[in-house]
Structure formats: structure tokens, C-alpha cells
């Protein structure tokens, strides 16, 4: 007896659905230019050259550093951070980080959007920290 496929319609339909789902990454991105974000540094950041940590460490670990800073400031009222090179910084997102990196949309948001990360830093720290600083004083 020749081998024969049973319920061919259903099997083929199911397999077509499977292939469509399994190849999602390949067809979803067709025709969409999706270059990796290029960071734009402000002149001030360029002039500074070195951030608090090295570029690789900042890329992978800036969220952890900010969290440590926050806890240190809020719980121990300690605002002094000394990095591995012995340089000291004021632990403050608004006044230290965003002082150089004042271009949030081009610096922070680009990568966060690309990697689909939504940090809640901005729930409190608004885009233009300088304005609030002046308002407080």
C-alpha cells in the first residue's frame, strides 16, 4: 500500500502556522532599517573624556552604580563617591550624570528604547534637572 498523508489540510495548515511563528524574527524586520543606536556625547562629556567608570563598566553596570548611589545618599546621607582612580564625584543623577549628559533623548533614551528598557529614574528626575534645582533655591 502506498504511503499516504492523512488529514493533509489540517497538518499543512498547522505546519504553516508553526513556520510563520518560528521565523518571526526574520520576517518582522524585513524592510526596516534598524541600526544600533549611536550615542551622541555633548561637548562637555567629550571634554571630560572619562566617566565615573570605564566605558565598558558603565555600559553594563551603570544601573547598578546609580542604585548604589541612591541608597548611599538616601540612607547614609553620603554624597561623596570616590572612583577606582581616586577621583571624587558628587553622587547625584541630576547634578553629576545629567550635567555632562544633558542630552537625555540622544543619550539615555536611545539605548533604553532599543533594548526595551524602561527605567523609573525619570519618574522623579525630570528631563531638565537644572530647572528644578533653581526652583528649589
Amino acid at each position: 500500500m502506498p504511503r499516504q498523508m492523512y488529514d493533509k489540510g489540517k497538518i499543512v495548515a498547522g505546519l504553516v502556522i508553526f513556520v510563520i511563528i518560528a521565523t518571526f524574527p526574520f520576517w518582522y524586520n524585513i524592510g526596516k532599517a534598524a541600526p544600533a543606536p549611536e550615542l551622541k556625547l555633548t561637548d562637555k562629556a567629550k571634554a571630560e573624556k572619562e566617566c565615573v567608570m570605564s566605558v565598558t563598566d558603565m555600559k553594563a553596570g551603570h544601573m547598578q552604580l546609580l542604585d548604589e548611589w541612591r541608597d548611599e545618599v538616601v540612607r547614609s546621607a553620603n554624597r561623596l563617591y570616590v572612583n577606582s582612580k581616586g577621583k571624587s564625584f558628587n553622587m547625584s543623577l541630576s547634578n553629576t550624570c545629567l550635567d555632562c549628559h544633558s542630552n537625555k533623548a540622544d543619550f539615555c533614551d536611545k539605548c533604553h528604547d532599543y533594548a526595551s528598557v524602561r527605567p523609573y529614574c525619570w519618574d522623579c528626575h525630570i528631563d531638565n534637572p537644572k530647572a528644578t534645582e533653581e526652583a528649589k533655591e
Binding site: M5, G14, L15
Partner: peptide, 11 residues
């Protein structure tokens, strides 16, 4: 995956 399922359909 496709091969296996297709193979089952012969039973």
C-alpha cells in the same frame, strides 16, 4: 520539526 510532524501524518 516540519519533517517529524509530516512523518506522523503518514500514520
Amino acid at each position: 520539526f516540519v519533517y517529524r510532524v509530516r512523518d506522523w501524518a503518514y500514520s
